[in-house]
């Protein structure tokens, strides 16, 4: 049960950081998301993101920062296995599921639905 509470608190906190970047720093959504992804990637590079996922579960793995985290994860695990080329080949190893799902579902949606509002 505590997992749900931590997921709520940590996930909410990351969204508040995003909101502050919108409202206080007056960044566009594109800039905000890019910065958050890079922040997630750097956090994983320093080994800080895994403990956060361990602790907050979906609170850390659902926000977009985890996308940067998974990119670095893929790059580093193939770096260890295949050497320097692994950095390039491994980047999408972990995230390919999410990106493919988003592309496929969005394409199918575009076939079926008309834009609303």
């Amino acid at each position: 049960m505590m997992q749900f509470v931590w997921a709520f608190l940590v996930g909410g906190a990351i969204c508040v950081i995003g909101q502050l970047m919108f409202d206080v720093a007056k960044l566009t959504p594109g800039h905000t998301m890019s910065l958050l992804v890079v922040a997630g990637a750097v956090a994983d590079g320093l080994g800080l993101y895994d403990p956060l996922v361990e602790f907050a579960g979906a609170g850390a793995s659902v926000p977009i920062t985890s996308f940067g985290n998974s990119l670095v994860h893929g790059a580093l695990s193939e770096l260890e296995r295949d050497g320097i080329m692994g950095v390039v080949t491994g980047i999408f190893e972990v995230t390919s599921g999410g990106i493919s799902a988003a592309i496929i579902f969005s394409f199918l949606a575009a076939l079926v639905f008309k834009p609303k509002g």
């Binding site: 594109g30 990637a41 994983d44 590079g45 940067g68 790059a75 999408f92």
Partner: peptide
């Protein structure tokens, strides 16, 4: 832009890890 910056950041972090000799975690 999210994908571009994520991938570029991951690339440089991977290279840095390689140079500094840190392993995967």
């Amino acid at each position: 832009s999210v994908i571009v910056f994520g991938v570029v950041a991951a690339f440089f972090i991977g290279i840095l890890h390689h140079i500094l000799g840190g392993g995967a975690h």
